[in-house]
Nucleic acid binder design. Structure first.
Lengths: 192, 192, 192, 192
DNA sequence: GATGAATGAGAATTCATTCAT
DNA sequence: TATGAATGAATTCTCATTCAT
């Protein structure tokens, strides 16, 4: 039951937004009554926090698998991490959008608890940049934090416009992003 | 009065979010009564739409000034356009955040009316990429639309984390973005 | 101006009902502002009372002309009085419907002032019955007041269903009512 | 609870009118809160529609019992039907008045659903006239529909002026109406 | 585990009315 | 005469939450 409530809530929050989705909407979709909801969750906010935590923890876990792979280059790791996010759009797009949109409906305490993981995710990425620099894969003169903010901004925004069923496949999109991130857009006579 | 209502609303919407800001909150801040609000606006949504339209129209106007300057290169134009957005954070950051966060509280009709301008802004940027390619400033093998989506995602997200009063100045931030966008992050032996 | 306000108000009250018609609706129709309304009327209720008084006074005047005609029988007077009401549907149907429907939006004081005339109208009709009895036109064993209440109920209700543009003309309707009122519906072997 | 809300609402709607009765008034009378009201009814209008439907359906049921009685004449049926309406004044007078006065506060859809029954009630009465003609009880040259509109108008208006506690008993009132309807008011030398 | 009735606080919105200009 | 800004009280309705069963 708890799982079903979470699942359907994500659907509804994605479709109508957190504040426009009522508990009634949620339980109606499942076919139970409001009492049931409050048997499993202390409040609407708690449900939202759970969704956030589920999402970011899962993402972190998958991130770690990639980062800990010793046999691939940093570029490849970056590639896979971006793919992780893009691939997520189809499978967990709803969670992702809810995650990215509805933070402001959590209270301070809850935001803090979520941000711990959020920050960890970002810092892990920064470490990747550092490592890439050391291995001579990335340029030295890069501001780690801002570069990561930039990449995340770019990739995450895809949730808002990218349609996985459209003409650009997920693999292509990742390639385009990687090309952009690695090489930039400038035409440079000296490059191959 | 109308102007004051808009101004204070932007403040509140930025601070607490659209749905958590009541008309009462707004009029209390100004020191008038709810009736006054409804004298100037048909509904809360109409106010939000007005904020959106004001913002995007203004942005479009400034964009055009930059794009129509015949004496500067495409790179320079891009630079200035990004600066336009970043500079906006300090001056119109609140509007910008409201603009980027609260779209979903507009109804279909209103979203449509706003999206006309939103799209125009994006298409203008795409034209810049095309032009840059023709002039040999940008690489040929770039997907115009996705590149622009990427750049906008990256730059716009700054509204959520960048603090203009912090240690990185706006000019520096723009330079970092430009460097990233133009050159990418890859270390390339052939480059200077 | 005053006249125009009354005229348009009757229209709107008939179409949407008194309570669903706002002062704003009224002044918008005319193209003036609310201030103007309150220059001419102390309140919305006062307007309604004026409409009522205008209507009933006018009706009374026309009634008197008919009743005072010395050269026609009581039957003929009754005929003409019913015709007066039915004919009114086309010309003053709106006023009439407002008059019959919206009494309850007047306050006690106002109802009283209107009922003076309303009652006079009814008593005049009762006198006609009395006179008709004396002249041997109507049966003796009739309860004057109830007969009149019955006739008025019957005829007045026409405002709610009768369409003067339909297939039954006003003259025909009056004839049907008169036949019903004079002769009843019973088949009587002794009658012609 | 639902029943109590309906009951008290009829009282209040009768006393103050639909639009002047607020949900607050209703729940205050019962001693519950507004939330309770909206637990049982989707809107104020829905409540009104329910009142209408309850009333007309009940009336229809009683009408059918009378019409289906094979052992009585049409005159007698008419007599009993009018008695049904008049008797109703004391018992269901409030419902009846609300039913007759507040139609215009229903929306189109709701009016339609109510009018189905309203019309059925009227058509049943028309069939009675037809039957009465065939059996030689009523005159042939009567317009069925208009006669019924007339009779209904006459009888229904009683709700507005007739006081069952007054000096005219319900039985007497019905007799007076029947006499008027059957025989008319004309003094006819040829009649008994 | 689950229900369903009830709450109560607050939300958006409407509107008759006032009044300085 | 007429305007238009402002009021304030009331109104319908929503909804997260509680709780006895």
């Amino acid at each position: 039951m708890r799982g079903r409530i979470i699942k359907e809530s994500i659907d509804l929050f994605d479709k109508k937004g957190f504040s426009k989705t009522s508990i009634q909407d949620i339980v109606d979709t499942i076919g139970v009554t409001k009492g049931t909801f409050y048997y499993y969750f202390k409040s609407k906010q708690e449900l939202l926090r759970d969704i956030h935590l589920n999402y970011i923890k899962e993402l972190l876990k998958e991130q770690e698998v990639i980062l800990n792979d010793e046999y691939i280059s940093c570029k490849e790791k970056l590639n896979r991490l971006i793919y992780l996010i893009i691939k997520n759009i189809k499978v967990h797009g709803k969670s992702a959008r809810v995650f990215n949109r509805e933070v402001r409906h959590l209270d301070q305490e809850q935001v803090k608890s979520v941000n711990v993981y959020r920050k960890e995710f970002r810092l892990n990425l920064q470490k990747l940049i550092v490592e890439g620099k050391e291995k001579g894969e990335f340029r030295e003169n890069l501001k780690n934090d801002i570069v990561i903010f930039g990449i995340l901004g770019m990739v995450n925004r895809s949730y808002n416009w990218y349609n996985p069923e459209g003409e650009v496949s997920e693999e292509e999109l990742v390639n385009i992003y990687m090309d952009l991130i690695l090489n930039g857009i400038k035409l440079d006579a000296n490059r191959t």
